[in-house]
């Protein structure tokens, strides 16, 4: 998928993560993370964001993430939402079990 516009998903409520996706000229993912649990889970959160974007076929974007302690499933959901919004597309395939 190609990111065409800036899009936002999620909120700054506790247990949520706000993801802003911007188109990028670089063929890479740049993730800026501000998290309440940065020391403990910062690395993991960046990886989940990155993996999720690759899963939906986004390999070029600038990600600004403001995290208030969201679980991995919430991060995945918000990233996917932002990605499809930014690409102006609808999700067409839904997977089964993640585990």
């Amino acid at each position: 998928m190609k990111i065409k516009n800036v899009a936002l998903a999620g909120t700054m409520e506790s247990s949520d993560i706000m993801i802003t996706l911007e188109p990028s000229k670089e063929k890479s993912l740049v993730i800026e993370l501000d998290s309440t649990v940065d020391k403990q889970f910062g690395r993991k959160i960046r990886r989940v964001i990155g993996d999720t974007l690759l899963e939906v076929g986004v390999d070029s974007a600038r990600v600004i993430a403001v995290d208030k302690g969201a679980l991995d499933c919430v991060i995945r959901a918000r990233v996917k939402t932002a990605a499809y919004r930014a690409a102006g597309e609808e999700c067409c395939h839904w997977g089964g079990d993640t585990k």
Binding site: V37, K39, Q40, F41, G42, R43, K44, L71, D72
Partner: peptide, 10 residues
């Protein structure tokens, strides 16, 4: 299982 394994604090 819920939150994942956290990195150790330096």
């Amino acid at each position: 299982k819920l939150v994942g394994i956290s990195d150790p604090i330096p």
